[in-house]
Structure formats: structure tokens, C-alpha cells
Design a protein around this nucleic acid. Sequence first.
DNA 1: ATGAAAGCGCTAACAA
DNA 2: TTGTTAGCGCTTTCAT
Lengths: 349, 349
Amino acid sequence: MVLTFKSPVRPPREVSMTRVTLRDVAAHAGVSHQTVSNVMNGHPSIRPATRDRVLAAIQALDYHPNQAAKALREARVTTLCCAFYGHDAENVDDPYRNVVQSAFIAEANVHGYSMTTAFVQDGPESFDSLRQRYRQGQFGGVVVVGNTLNAAQWQALQGWGLPAVLFDHRLPDSAALSVSSDYTSGMHALVAHHAAQGRRHLALIIPLQDAASTAVDRREAFRAAAAQHGLQAHLIAGDWSYASGEAALHTLWRGGNSPDAVLGGNDRMAAGALRAALELGLRVPGQVAISGFDNFEFSRYTHPSLTTVNVPHAEMARRAVRALLARLEQHQTPPNVVLPASLVIRESA
Amino acid sequence: MVLTFKSPVRPPREVSMTRVTLRDVAAHAGVSHQTVSNVMNGHPSIRPATRDRVLAAIQALDYHPNQAAKALREARVTTLCCAFYGHDAENVDDPYRNVVQSAFIAEANVHGYSMTTAFVQDGPESFDSLRQRYRQGQFGGVVVVGNTLNAAQWQALQGWGLPAVLFDHRLPDSAALSVSSDYTSGMHALVAHHAAQGRRHLALIIPLQDAASTAVDRREAFRAAAAQHGLQAHLIAGDWSYASGEAALHTLWRGGNSPDAVLGGNDRMAAGALRAALELGLRVPGQVAISGFDNFEFSRYTHPSLTTVNVPHAEMARRAVRALLARLEQHQTPPNVVLPASLVIRESA
DNA sequence: ATGAAAGCGCTAACAA
DNA sequence: TTGTTAGCGCTTTCAT
């Protein structure tokens, strides 16, 4: 275990700010500081006259209660954390992270909390820095994003006493409080749509080894749904990137026996496959249908626009924050949340 | 990577965390609590033996200094704020906000600060809530995003004593410390490229009334550059949205005298225009060139991919944070930053 | 080199 | 109903 005794960066210097305190207000209103505190916190049993005098003083002095003092005294923080596990902070373009992070922040703000962000790299040292920040009182609970988190790591979080919610990921036996989306149903609806359009041979571009539930669910549902509809099903490797989608389509067409529908495991790979197909002169969806998965904004901008499966990322994020707050504020364990993932039919399939 | 997670030094217990304080460590090490404080802060003049004993106690008790107490005592705060002025918190898909916000957060974290986010609506009430949060000690400085901020509002921020940096926006006479990008040069390069490709009649889709420097710079540079190259130049209204780009192209082609190059004022409008052009059966770039502005990730995903102007949003964001920290920590006023915006030639123009 | 005292701004508990 | 006292955990100042 590595403890940081000295901050690696230079500590901020003092910022000059005229601080108006409870006592200043009290003096101005001719009451004790406790009375001011009571007024601030809406305590009962304050004479209206006193109350008015205090409020006037607060106005006059432009008083604002110091949050650090409050936090220290009440031993609680109004900050949450979203921890991106295994994500790269530098990869600023990733729409998944951006959408989800923005929604976390907005929802936390709605409830009067602020949201800080941590990027946790693969490795115990980085994982431990999350614990340090928690123990230092930098946040009171965490939403963990990162579908490679395993049961042992979840247990570690629990061991720290850190209230946590797992986002877009499930653990076996519902070991963790989680908010996820029903990729299985989404994939079934998508395959059914391809079948209804007369497609007979489907290929899914997706990481083949990835053990994350986001990948596993899609792979297994794809196979099951294809079997159910009596369709030929084919998996081909991709790594979630645009380029891997392009490459996969070229690979598919290099060998004979090309599919008549290509399913991108996410929108980016679908966009790559779409581009590759158009480059080959294929008519989409005439000769080959192409579909995505995620429904990020850009899936409307391709030509043809992408048929895809909507994953309600923002709503999931909001639910995750609410679940965390339920644990934190009401000390209750809310049920796991699974939101539907629904088919969005556009032009490409 | 398989990791073993050490169980916490103290066994898992109730969610209520008993805090280990300086005094606990002091007692364990048989010294006074200030000695522990001195060790923590790397003070000189500590006997190695004492120091080791203290470190051992810190390890043994898993001590982490309380940030709230530190902040209270030192009257400083290690949180910054990025304030999105006139942005909608609900609009979670906006790549501009997402990219910029992510970069702010990442850069702040690099320097040991956390970053909170505020959405400031148009109106004095919302603007004042920013001041409240500052006065409550929720953050020590702000990066203001929102190119409708005027000089009076900037002056208000200054009046509060709130250290601020203006992002992607300039005020007349360099009234504000700002970080922006050279849209003028970017637009000149783009127009020169269109001219070099033999285009003679250019149309720019852009808000016609918008007084923000982001819009004004692009409009004026477009006119100047087109004149310089002896090109026919034409402005047509758009509101930065995908749909408005589509509509603008249809409008252009409904009247006769269609341009041979359409410049989207941003990538989204360009994508909309591109789609509309393809719908009309136009060959791009054969019959009409289409270009964007921003170089967001999806501009690589269209077919043909978008020629555009790269705006270094993430780098701008990093610079803004660093400029703010220079003000905060070194009490110096760094110079305004203007980063280059460079042409990215792809397939569409 | 180390310890004691004071107090940052706030709230909880009790006293008046 | 209001005021007084006592800290929350930390750092600064000053004494030892």
C-alpha cells in the first residue's frame, strides 16, 4: 500500500476573500451566533422580530455559510464521485464517457450534490487512490463505471465502507447494487427486425473474448435470437473502435459467403462497417443491412442513417445517482435497476 | 490482469466510518499531534526515529488527513468550477460541452484539484447562484464557457473577487483573461483550400445575428477570405444544429444559382448539409464540396468524411485551467492564449 | 526537535 | 426563546 504523505503538486496558496461569518452577522443583528445558525437552518422557536433582524443582517453583510466548516462539523460531505475504471482520461472524445459523465453531474447537482470524477487505472495502486480520496473525505459515495470490475474489487469497495453503485455492469448473483440496461432484449428485437426484413445471414462485430456483461450479453443474445429465427449467425472480432468496424467488414467480404446483415456491436463499429460497405460499392440497406448499438447522436448523421438499439445512457446515469443517494441518505438498499434497450429503426437496416 | 486486493487494515464495519485523526496517530506513536502534522507536511527538523515511528503509526491506523478540516483551517479550497453560461444541462449529447468539460476535469485532476460544474442560465438570478457557491467556498476559481458573456458580466465576476478565465470567447480590448482559438486563420485556410480546388461560389451556413466571437470571427473571415480570392460568397442562416444544416442546403438548391461549395459553420450543420446533398443525388465532392468546422470525432464517420477545421478544444481547455491556476497560485496574470485552428482535409472537399 | 495553545466557522447540547 | 459552552480535525505561533 502506498500512502501519499505529501501532495505531489504544490498546494494552492491562500486566496484573499473577505469572509463574513456567523459572528459578524450576529454582531450586526445584536444576537448570538447560535441564533443566526438557527435562522439559517430554519429552526422553529425563533421570534419573528429576531428572525427578521437576522435576515436583514444576512442580507446587509451578504453572508454565505462556509461549506468546509459545515462539512467538518457535520462529518458529512455533499460530493459524490464517478469512478471510471479502466478508462483513459485523455480519450476526451469518447461519447460513452462524455454522455454518462455529464448526466451524473447534472443529476447530482439536481439533488444538491456536486460530482467529482476519478479515473481508476487497472492495478491495485490506482484502485487504492480511490480509497484514499474517500478516506480524506473528498466524497461520500461512488458510482463505478467500468464493466471489467470483478466481484473481488466490489468486495474491496464494500470493505472500505464506501457506498457504491455499479453502472452498466452486473455481477453474478446480483452481488452488487447495479444499474444496467437490458441488452439481451435489445439484441433480440434487433435480430427480429433483421429477420423480418428477410435477412438470412447475420454477422455481429464484437470483441470475442471480452468478459464484460456489455459484451457477453450482446454475443449470447445474438446467438440465441439468430437460432430462434433460424438464421445463420456469425461472430467477427472488433474492439469497439471505428477502425475495427471497417476492418471487420472488409474481412467479411474478402472471404466468400458474405452476410446480408452486419450488426455493429456498437455505433462506432457500425459506422466503420457502413463506410467500408459504401467504399466497396455495396448498396445499404439494399445489398446489406447495417445496424448499430448505442444510439449515440452521430448515428443520425451517417448516410444512410443507422438503425440501432437505443441504450438510455443518460437515464441510467440519473438512476445510478438516485440509487446512490437512497443508500446514502435513507440508508436503504434500493433494488437493482434494469432499463429497456429499444430498437430504433432508421435507414440502414 | 489478476489482482489481489488487500483487505483493509481495519475490518469492514458499519457504513458510519469512525475517523482516524491526527491525535489517534499521535497517541499510537507516543508523540503530540503536531508532530504528526509536521511529518505529514514534510516539515524539516524531525528526528528520523520519531519520523519513522509516526509513519508506522499512520500505516497501522490507515490514517488519512481530513480535507474539510484542512480547507477550513487553511481558508483555501482545492476545487475549481467550470461554468457553462447559457448551456442546457439536459442536452447531454452536445459534443462541444462534453469534450470541453472532460478536458477541464482531467486537467484539474492533474494539478491536484477537483472540478465542479455549474450551468448558468441567462438571467441575473442564475448568475447570482454562481456567486453564492463561490462565497460558500465551493470553489476557488472559475472557467467561464459561454460566448454570450458580455463585458458587464465579466466585470461582475471581477467585482466578486472570483478568479476567472474566459473560454472560447474574447472581450473587446482584451478586457478578460481568455483562451480562444484562431478561427479567422482557420477560416482563411479553409476558403483558400476551396479556392485551390477550383470552387468559385461559396455558401456559409451560420447564425446571421449571433454576436458571439465564435460566430462573428467565422462570418467576417469568410467574407474577407472569399473577397481576397475573388470568390462569390453567400451567407445562409443556421442555428448550429444538424437539422438547420439540412434545411439550409435544401434552401440553397431550391433557388437557382447554387454554390459549388457549402461550408458548415460547425460539423453538425455540415453533416446535415452533406446528408441533404446526398439525398438530392448530388455527388460530393464532385458537384459540390462540403466542409465543416470543429473536427469532432463523428466528422470522420460520415461518407464522404468531412473536410473540416480542427479546433483544439481539449488543448484549449487544458490551457484555460492552467491559466486559472497561474492566477490562483502565483497571483500572476498570464497572457491571453490563442491556439491555431488548422485545416483537416478529408474527402468531402 | 517537540509540545502546548489557539482558533478556522460551524452546529449540537445544554443552560438560562 | 435565546445565549453559552464545547468541540469537529487541522495548522500556525510560540514556548520549551
